[in-house]
């Protein structure tokens, strides 16, 4: 009988729940029935890659398709050819990253001299940020430098980040920053 690694783990998991097994030639029907009773029956399974170090381990994310639609569990992906289902403590704890009461879930604004945050809307936040970017950029934009050479850049705005963004996000971010004329553009790779 051919198993994929994932089937093997599912089967042995169900077996550990208490069914008797007699060698490898057992009848899968009762096991399948039991497996269907596990929490992950209601889960959507998606694959992702761990967001920590750069080994790039594969994970399987089980997302509930009932109720709050949140993560039930995240575990190593046995079919990933690098980590083969294993994870370090950070990867193994990933569900605590996504399901975390300390996460910020609304944009916030800190006013000058204030000692606290104020919750604001996305539209307000992005509108206000855009206004400030334009004001700061336009106030001191350098068309030509002291030598009279054309530079078309701003040194009044700087950006750092991020090695945690996806490739596609990194690309559009640097495109946006460069279109604004930023030269102070850096991130984790520099340190």
């Amino acid at each position: 009988m051919d198993f994929t690694r994932r089937q093997f783990i599912q089967v042995t998991g169900a077996t550990a729940a208490g069914l008797a097994v007699s060698g490898m030639g057992f009848d899968l029907k009762p096991i399948k029935a039991h497996a269907q009773m596990l929490k992950t029956e209601y889960a959507k399974q998606t694959t992702s890659i761990c967001p920590y170090c750069a080994v790039g381990c594969g994970v399987i994310v089980y997302t509930s398709q009932k109720g709050d639609g949140r993560v039930i569990d995240i575990e190593g992906d046995p079919d990933h050819v690098i980590n083969r289902g294993t994870l370090c403590s950070k990867g193994a704890a990933l569900s605590q990253l996504s399901e975390n009461k300390l996460r910020v879930t609304d944009p916030m604004y800190r006013a000058p001299y204030s000692k606290e945050w104020k919750t604001v809307s996305w539209d307000w936040a992005l509108t206000e940020i855009a206004k400030r970017v334009k004001a700061t950029r336009d106030a001191a934009f350098t068309r030509t430098n002291a030598k009279g050479q054309v530079v078309n850049h701003t040194t009044a705005i700087a950006s750092v980040g991020s090695a945690a963004m996806d490739n596609e996000e990194c690309w559009i971010y640097q495109a946006l920053m460069r279109s604004l004329g930023l030269v102070y553009l850096e991130h984790q790779a520099r340190i």
């Binding site: 959507k44 998606t46 694959t47 992702s48 890659i49 967001p51 750069a54 080994v55 790039g56 594969g58 994970v59 994310v61 089980y62 997302t63 639609g69 949140r70 993560v71 995240i74 690098i82 990933l94 990253l97 996504s98 996460r103 910020v104 879930t105 609304d106 944009p107 916030m108 604004y109 800190r110 945050w117 936040a125 206000e128 940020i129 945690a164 996806d166 490739n167 596609e168 996000e169």
Partner: peptide, 29 residues
């Protein structure tokens, strides 16, 4: 301005590991 970013398992896109492998990932929740 604090802008809340979601966690990696909540979005789709690719990342590249140290071995230069570009790997696609999918949205869970």
């Amino acid at each position: 301005f604090f802008l809340p970013a979601c966690v990696s398992v909540e979005k789709e896109g690719s990342i590249t590991n140290s071995g230069r492998w570009m790997q696609w990932r999918y949205q869970g929740p």
